[in-house]
Design a binder for these strands. Structure first.
Lengths: 344, 344
DNA sequence: GCGGCGGATTGAAATGTTTCAAGAACGGGA
DNA sequence: TCCCGTTCTTGAAACATTTCAATCCGCCGC
């Protein structure tokens, strides 16, 4: 008739065990954890000693269940492999860790289905907010989530009319800068290695490029050849060269981001085409390594750390949901960084 | 005496609401969600219709509370800004998303305190496992967590005697490769721009370098000058040049990673020191952009995607905890990539 | 000696699931 | 008609917290 201890299959400790050990009620243990100012000194010490002695670790799921919301926010990017995103990430992490929030990283891999799947899981987790660069151009599902009480901030994508908060860099302006730069160097046949036009950033940069061409009194249809890449990777950038009429073709290649430009430079070198002499090349994003490529890459800089931080800031205020449906949009301006790959 | 509906302050839906709407019990709703094969056809359809009609989303915290563990794993890196980690991440994400696990990204920023803080939170969240590159060299706290039932895999760090699973690249061997390469080119004064020696990878690479020097019949103390950087960033790499006696000093710089080498190349270019003519430079990791720097950077390649995938694999088996305290260590071999920055 | 007060503690309800023993409905065979 | 087996469904317990009204206790003032 003795108690049978089963150390083999031992249950995780709960506040009940702590309470028993310290000789108080669970309510008191909870108070020690969350509102220690309500608890008398000796009791406080005793309970804390029990917590330490037993090695008790409170259960976040139970807390969240009670609270109705979790302490992690979702960050959904289109591709973790893209250095642009990984340079935005530190800005986000910094801000979130200050608020003791966990960062749940999701990569949609540019698939609308995978994005939808992750969003569903995040909603199940009752995250207070999501930071997202949407995979597709339709964002009505995000508006709907927002309406259901999940803070939502678009990252690197204008919110437009959608009533969603957004942090973005002006991609049309960036495209204009790039176009104006290439035109000023005398280029009249420009190939634009773009991503799928359903991706907003890609469409905007193209629009800016066209604007620049028109502003110079020229016809975009004649000046610009667009090549659409299935994915924005170095490999695809290199492969795209095959599809270019290099002789009698364009004299300048504008890549929709630096990752693509990386592959393009590699491919041109292998083919013995000299940059910038035989072909001017420029990228977009100005990621960390752009300035150090061979040749150094002309690019359009986006303020990535700021972008991440601003996005997290906005999400925090949106998730608190204080001010109702008020929404806000922060647009940073890009900056042209002229380097060797387009120098005359 | 009419019901008063309060649409203003509406509670989140639960399975109770779905059950009421469909005219069944909550148990049945649960079965529809988790074991639909137990539920009769018409009931199944009716409940599913109710779920859709009401827009019900199950609560992950409640599930987890019941289950005793969550569906997210922690990934702790020392610095998200480091491209090495961001190139390992896709391998991890791929594997985790296959298992429908969420990736919680934590960056210790090389601080033991921040690491401890994050570990505590992850334990509270009842994650089944953690993938970690530890900030300090003492890993007894990780062994302890493992003992308490949290799967634990060391990333890019040998588990040594610790009984922990580990996935690593042989850093000593990598250091040897780098050293042998520089020595074979005739360099006899080598500066090693290293991180703090409490970081295991840094210490191992140094050890390999020394091995190579000794293997050539030389004295490490005479050949190698070590410069310790406070952080492994381009900025610090560039700054370290100030501390080097460039004239009559080393003829080769071995940087502990490519990020540092990036800054070094930038700094040397600004100072008009030609690479590899006046100074040979090599890095470590062989990140995506290394081959395309100006000049292209000699580096020691680590199989990063594989590393991430293998780590996630190991974590999944460890977290299931099937096989007791059995542990395993996977060591990949590095590969020397000789490029222009050290070419004779 | 008693009413009341304020600080400390308690006990129970509520949060949203899953699981499981038990019950209901139904049909078939004796 | 009764019994039994199968198939579906139910209701309640359990998970680990937080919160809050209620209680307890000592003490002060009258």
């Amino acid at each position: 008739m003795t108690d049978i201890h089963k150390p083999a299959e031992r249950r995780r400790l709960s506040m009940v065990d702590v309470a028993a050990h310290a000789g108080v009620s669970v309510g008191t243990v909870s108070n020690v954890l969350n509102r220690p100012e309500l608890v008398a000194g000796p009791t406080l010490r005793r309970v804390r000693a029990s917590i330490k002695a037993l090695g008790f670790v409170p259960s976040a799921p139970a807390r969240q269940l009670r609270a109705g919301s979790s302490r992690s926010v979702g960050v959904m990017v289109r591709d973790i492999g893209n250095p642009f995103f990984t340079e935005v990430l530190p800005g986000i992490e910094t801000r979130l860790s200050q608020e003791e929030l966990l960062l749940v990283l999701c990569s949609s891999s540019d698939s609308v289905e995978k994005e939808a799947y992750y969003l569903q899981i995040l909603e199940q987790h009752r995250v207070p907010g999501i930071l997202i660069t949407p995979a597709g151009q339709d964002i009505s599902h995000l508006v709907e989530l927002r309406r259901r009480g999940i803070g939502m901030v678009l990252l690197d994508r204008p919110g437009a009319d959608s009533q969603l908060c957004a942090v973005a860099v002006d991609n049309v302006r960036g495209g204009e800068m790039a176009g104006a730069h290439l035109l000023s160097l005398g280029h009249r046949r420009i190939a634009f290695l773009n991503g799928p036009s359903i991706v907003r950033q890609c469409a905007d940069r193209r629009k800016g490029l066209d604007n620049a061409v028109r502003a110079a009194g020229l016809d975009p249809d004649e000046v610009v050849t667009e090549i659409t890449l299935p994915a924005l990777t170095p490999r695809e950038g290199e492969a795209a060269l095959e599809r270019l009429p290099l002789r009698e073709g364009p004299t300048a290649l504008f890549c929709v981001n630096d990752t693509v430009a990386l592959g393009v430079l590699r491919g041109l070198e292998q083919r013995g085409i000299s940059v910038p002499h035989d072909m001017a090349v420029m990228g977009y994003d100005d990621v960390e390594f752009a300035a150090l490529l061979s040749p150094s890459l002309t690019s359009v800089r986006q303020p990535k750390h700021q972008l991440g931080q601003a996005a997290a800031d906005l999400l925090l205020t949106d998730a608190r949901g204080d001010s109702g449906h008020w929404h806000q949009e922060i647009v940073f301006q890009p900056e042209l960084m002229v380097r060797a790959s387009t120098r005359a």
